[in-house]
């Protein structure tokens, strides 16, 4: 059953050193900043972070990297105009980087959540990112064998949750949230708003509560949280 946590620190109890953490977001859209701040406060070290980017500016994921708690990051697009924290750590040899094509990142996480052992994918065939990987020709097309990415912990930002853990997202802040929620031993979700079971139309639930272990309300700092539950 989904547990409703009183605050982000309570939601992140028991994070172990060396954990693999799936962190939602595409740049800052959908980045679970309050949960990342709480992860920093746990002091957990030697983390492997899986996220599309490697932090923006000095907040959220960038702050986690700056705190020296991340040993390795798995992402598709680390280099951005405001990724100076990551850039400096990488150039100093203080963080390990695994670059994964964005669709492979999503599908490898999806595969973990869906119980798929591995899959053959056409992305990256003949490129440096497929070097050393098993390949196979199926019906005349070449594919690369890709393995799932599973997390010990997933940190996700959604818009609205009900007390059963059913989730709605908002616009392109959805991005990796629904797949990451399925792929971790413990999935923690921060939401703008919590509503009673029954207040979300079952037809429009995006992430069913079975994938959600803990929910914590972190009201958005803007008026955007005023949107309707079905919006």
């Amino acid at each position: 059953m989904t547990e409703i946590a009183s605050d982000p620190d309570a939601a992140l109890k028991g994070v172990a050193d060396g954990a693999t953490v799936l962190v939602g977001g595409f740049g800052t859209a959908g980045q679970p900043v309050e949960l990342i701040d709480a992860l920093i406060r746990t002091g957990a070290r030697d983390l492997t972070v899986v996220s599309n980017n490697a932090g923006n500016g000095d907040h959220g994921l960038a702050a986690l990297l700056a705190a020296g708690q991340v040993r390795k990051i798995v992402c598709s697009f680390p280099r951005q105009s405001d990724s100076w924290v990551f850039d400096a750590l990488y150039r100093a040899g203080k963080i390990e980087l695994e670059v994964v094509p964005q669709g492979n990142l999503a599908e490898r996480i999806r595969a973990a959540g869906a119980g798929i052992g591995a899959f053959f994918c056409p992305t990256g065939v003949g490129t440096p990112l497929a070097e050393g990987k098993e390949t196979r020709t199926i019906d005349g097309r070449d594919y690369v064998l890709e393995y799932p990415i599973r997390g010990d912990l997933a940190l996700v930002k959604a818009h609205v949750a009900d007390t059963r853990g059913n989730l709605l997202y908002r616009k392109t802040a959805r991005n990796f949230g629904p797949v990451m929620a399925t792929a971790a031993t413990t999935t923690v979700v921060q939401v703008d708003r919590l509503v009673d079971a029954g207040a979300i139309d079952p037809e429009v639930v995006v992430t069913p509560g079975i994938f959600v272990d803990r929910v914590v309300v972190c009201p958005a700092s803007t008026e955007l949280a005023e949107e309707g539950a079905a919006g």
Binding site: S76, F77, R79, Q80, V100, Q102, G103
Partner: peptide, 14 residues
């Protein structure tokens, strides 16, 4: 150079 591929490889073959 810091490598960053994003969605380019998926788009190219898709």
């Amino acid at each position: 150079a810091i490598p960053a591929v994003g969605g380019a490889m998926d788009l190219a073959i898709g």
